[in-house]
């Protein structure tokens, strides 16, 4: 009898742990959905494009005037036109410190990525330029260029999810072992 009670108690305990695990995992998946949604927003995605051309505006069209990664190799850097702050006059280029694309070797593409693809990409240090999950969270939490997504200036829709909420979501996802959706 005592063995049965102990077994039952143990079973309850592990069920609760399973529940906790399942709860953690479903929280993590919901959290990652937030991350994916934000990263697909034009303010983030436009500088994480598929090709070599940054994208612009809310309709994510290719950057005007044939600006691509090649431009930087030929003396026209992003910072030639994009300053450290948004322009003060209408239709001037947006700005933030160190305006740039991810390097060609680690393009960190968001455009067109499914949640599963994005997740696997973020977990692969070869694709993150050596940043681990903590490093990615730090980037999202503190980088000034990332922060621009919430203060892009007139004519560009800011990211709707508050930055702190995004960071919390990333942390939740990371703490649960960064599970990837199917």
């Amino acid at each position: 009898m005592r063995a049965l009670v102990l077994l039952a108690l143990a079973a309850c305990g592990s069920a609760r742990a399973d529940d906790d695990n399942r709860h953690d995992e479903s929280s993590a998946r919901m959290a990652f959905a937030t991350v994916h949604e934000v990263f697909m927003h034009p303010r983030c995605m436009n500088c994480h494009p598929v090709g070599d051309a940054p994208l612009q505006f809310d309709d994510s069209r290719p950057h005007a005037m044939a600006i691509t990664r090649r431009s930087e190799r030929n003396g026209v850097a992003c910072s030639t036109c994009h300053r450290a702050k948004n322009g003060t006059r209408p239709n001037q280029p947006p700005g933030a410190p160190n305006w740039h694309l991810p390097p060609a070797e680690t393009p960190m593409v968001f455009e067109g990525r499914t949640p599963k693809q994005l997740c696997e990409q973020l977990k692969d240090p070869k694709q993150t330029g050596g940043k681990d999950l903590a490093g990615l969270v730090h980037h999202v939490e503190h980088d000034a260029l990332v922060g621009w997504g919430w203060e892009p200036g007139p004519g560009r829709t800011p990211v709707k999810t508050p930055r702190a909420k995004l960071v919390a979501a990333m942390k939740t996802w990371a703490a649960a072992g960064a599970p990837c959706p199917d």
């Binding site: 005037m65 044939a66 600006i67 431009s71 030929n74 003396g75 026209v76």
Partner: peptide, 24 residues
């Protein structure tokens, strides 16, 4: 001025290189 910077960065630009630097 854009061309001087172009040639400083790339001494042998192709037509594609020129497009990427001077189309702006």
């Amino acid at each position: 001025m854009t061309t001087v910077a172009l040639l400083a960065a790339n001494a042998s630009p192709t037509d594609e290189d020129i497009d990427s630097a001077l189309s702006a």
